[in-house]
Every structure is written in structure tokens, then in C-alpha cells.
Design a binder for these strands. Structure first.
Lengths: 105, 105
DNA sequence: TTCATGTTTCCAATAATATAGAAATATTAT
DNA sequence: ATAATATTTCTATATTATTGGAAACATGAA
């Protein structure tokens, strides 16, 4: 991952509404959630929700698929993992003792 | 971790200069790096560097200690780990099969 | 004390982002 | 075809962040 894409991803997450959306999708799993259901659960008006979903999509953190008149959004776990790997890369001056294993997602 | 602190941390990282500073400190380990050395390695003028270091400090992602006339900055691994845990919390709809272990830092 | 070095604060100009109402678009049901 | 539902685009406004020169503020050395 290059720094520009990392900044894009972090910028996308650095906003309360978008972070809430992303976490909800991370927890929802691959099946995803329809845009309307997201808006309802989080109390976001349609225009605002759409704006934020576009931002998260542009950053590749979420993806969408059409199902009839619904648009289903889901988290991109691979992109999330890439971002985390970028942040933690070559950490701790190579002192592996400080690096306990952690669940991937 | 609460959403407000997560947004603060993500905002702090969502900027090219600050992300470069943070990654450098993550890789430097607990020993840390003096402000001036950071500025020199990254080519950032003092005022700008100081502004960004303050932002990262406010977000608790880095900490500093004085050593003579130097100020030594270092990454806060615990805060980094908290942020990552917050992003990945309850992921994948509980489907552990998708969650491979990964190094913590 | 005086000077050199390292870091932070002050400031003003500039640039980027978030919000949501209203209208437009798309799909499905009657 | 008409109506109902789901989502996005258009638009304007308000808010917040970034930059770096100059000055101020330490600390250590001569």
C-alpha cells in the first residue's frame, strides 16, 4: 500500500458518521446491509448517507452490489487488512518480543 | 475505545505528513526520535512539524519526553493497538474462519 | 553572560470537507 | 401506465484544517 491510498482510507474513516457506517458493515459480514437499512439504523438522511457511502467506496473500504432496487453495501476486509498492515509495518525496531499475535479481523 | 477518540486518532493519521511521522516512529521503537531528526528526515519546516506533532500527541498516538534541549517523540503502541481493535471489533458476523491471526505490531 | 542550537507559538492566507433539502433516477408492484 | 419505494446527484452554506515565516522560548556551551 502506498501512502496516498492509506491517507485516503484513513480520511474516509476519520469522520464519525463514516466510521459508524464502516464498523456496522465490518460487523455485518460479507452478506452486507442495504443503504436504506444503514440510514435507518444510524439516523442519517439519504443525501448525507449517500455522500458518505461514496467516500468510503472511493477509498475502497466498502463495496456495493445492486439487488433489485436495493444497493447492498459490505466491508472490504482485504482493504482493511492492508491498511492495518501499512500502519504496523516494520514496527518496534524489529523487537518481535513486543509483537503479540492478534486476530486478523 | 469510544468513537470520538477513534475519530481523533484516525484524523490525526489521515494526513500525509503526519502518517509519515507516525510510521517512522512506529518503526523506530520505544527509543524514539528527536523532533529535529524527524524534520530533517522528512524535510518538514519546524513550525509545520511542531503543528503535526501536536496533533498526533493530542490524539495520544505519540508521546514525548524531554532530554536536555531535545524533545524525543515515540509511538504509543498501546493506542495503535486500541485503534486497530476498535476497527476490527466483532468483525465478519462472528465467522471466525475468516479471521487469521496477525502480528500485533 | 553571551551565543548557538532545538523546539514551540503566533498569525494570516489558503484550501478542503460536511451537511441536508429538493430534484432526478431507477426499480418493483398494482 | 401510475404509484410507491430506494438511492443518488445537485446545490449552497458553514465549518475546519494546513502551511510556513517570524518571533518567542528553552537549554547547554564558551
Amino acid at each position: 500500500m502506498k501512502i496516498k491510498s492509506a491517507v485516503e482510507a484513513l480520511s474516509a474513516l476519520a469522520q464519525e458518521t463514516r466510521l459508524a457506517i464502516f464498523r456496522l458493515l465490518v460487523q455485518a459480514g460479507r452478506e452486507g446491509v442495504a443503504a436504506g437499512a444503514l440510514g435507518e439504523q444510524l439516523g442519517i438522511p439519504p443525501a448525507t448517507l449517500s455522500f458518505h457511502l461514496k467516500e468510503l467506496t472511493r477509498a475502497r473500504l466498502i463495496k456495493s452490489r445492486a439487488e433489485g432496487r436495493y444497493v447492498i453495501y459490505s466491508a472490504s476486509y482485504t482493504e482493511m487488512d492492508k491498511l492495518i498492515a501499512y500502519l504496523t509495518e516494520h514496527c518496534c525496531a524489529g523487537d518481535a518480543a513486543q509483537c503479540a499475535p492478534r486476530k486478523s479481523c
